[in-house]
Simulated scan of single mutants.
Amino acid sequence: MTTETSPLIFDGHNDALLKLYRAGGTSAADGFLTGRDGAIDVPSSKAGGFGGGFFAVYVPSPVDLEFKFEEMAKASYDLPLPDAIDWEDAFPVAMSQAAILFDLERRGALKVCTTAAQLRATLGSGVMAAIFHIEGAEAIDAELNTLEVLYRAGLRSIGPVWSRPTIFGHGVPFRYPSGPDTGLGLTDHGLRLVKRCDELGIMVDLSHLNEAGFWDVARHSSKPLVATHSNAHVICPHSRNLTDKQLAAIRESDGMVGLNFAVAFLREDGRMLADVPLEQMLRHLDHLIEHLGEDRVGFGSDYDGAVVPEELTSCAGLPKLRHAMAKHGYNDALMAKLCHENWLRVLEKTWGE
């Protein structure tokens, strides 16, 4: 039954670890337990029925955020991609963010889950369920030695790229209007990464990959195709969004797409402006459900990493989204699928446990 805080929402992407890292690392983690200036913390999760999600480890580039936001508020834009980051520079930053994740687990704020059974049990426990995810594989070396070690530490999901290039492939720029076909696909290193992730049971995240990279994964992976935080290109023609042809491939693989709350990927005009009604999110959900089916759609908020609609700036606001979905006509069974059951299904199939 749908209520203010149920079904629990399990989310495909957040950048809380980056925000905590920038605020001081493990010394800033107290605020995650008691309340902080951010989208996700323990009090907000309880108020909003936020059950957890993919906690991304992301190595930031030096970016002028004020310039980026000003450009993305315009009618069209094409931001230059940041330079690639070497493994030697990325690895210590990634380890610092992973340490924050495990410190939060030690404090009882969340539980890092490595199996679908653990995930399901944790969702019913009152503790946030977390998946250790890497967004942009700069911290993985060409020999994949760090991948093996991080898998042992609990890594279960990885995006080969953010938007800047890596030794594994190429991402899409922040460009509007634009399709996702913006350059070369996976490198030989990238193909080996996909193969080893399949063998280990690490989910490969297609969000941020350009179209050539997407099709490379589709050809070489035996697992469901998953984009943790992407939207419908036919509604918002941004380079970050998925075409109907890509959605058809995801459906064919029995994969999954998490709806991104970032306003530039929701709005038809592609602008980074927060006055986005919840009805616009429902338009994307309807399109994704139409093309993927009810079992392959969920949420991937991008909380703590993007400008999101004014009504949903914190996970405490998620009851508003549930109310809008129920008012739109989604029944209880569909609500449960969209909120968390579909993520459990695709992770069980991807991880094999």
Rank of each mutant, 00 (worst) to 15 (best):
I235T: 03
E252K: 10
R322M: 04
S178M: 06
T313S: 11
D30S: 14
G201S: 09
K46M: 11
I85E: 14
G183M: 00
I250W: 04
P224N: 14
A249L: 03
L225T: 10
E279K: 10
F132N: 03
S314Y: 10
E279R: 09
Y77N: 04
V226L: 07
D181L: 02
E70I: 02
M95N: 14
E310P: 09
R345S: 14
T26C: 11
E138M: 12
L104W: 00
G124A: 01
C197G: 07
A274G: 09
P309F: 00
L191H: 08
E268D: 12
I250N: 03
G38A: 02
E311C: 07
S6R: 05
G51V: 01
A262R: 03
D30G: 09
S45F: 05
F265L: 03
V308F: 07
G51Y: 01
S96G: 05
S45H: 02
H233V: 05
S27D: 13
R296V: 01
P237W: 11
P173Q: 11
L184D: 15
T26A: 09
G293T: 03
I235F: 13
G298D: 12
E138R: 05
S96M: 00
E290C: 06
N231L: 06
G25N: 01
L184W: 14
D64E: 01
I158S: 12
A153M: 13
R251W: 06
F174E: 13
S157L: 00
G171H: 00
V161Q: 02
L155D: 03
L123A: 04
C339H: 08
L193N: 02
H340I: 04
K74G: 15
L147I: 00
L193R: 12
D37C: 06
R283C: 04
D198E: 10
N14H: 01
K46W: 05
S76F: 07
R267D: 08
E70T: 12
A23L: 07
T146A: 11
V112G: 05
R283L: 11
G190I: 03
D188V: 05
I131N: 12
D205E: 09
G300V: 00
V257W: 14
L184R: 15
T313Q: 15
Q246C: 00
T3V: 01
N260I: 02
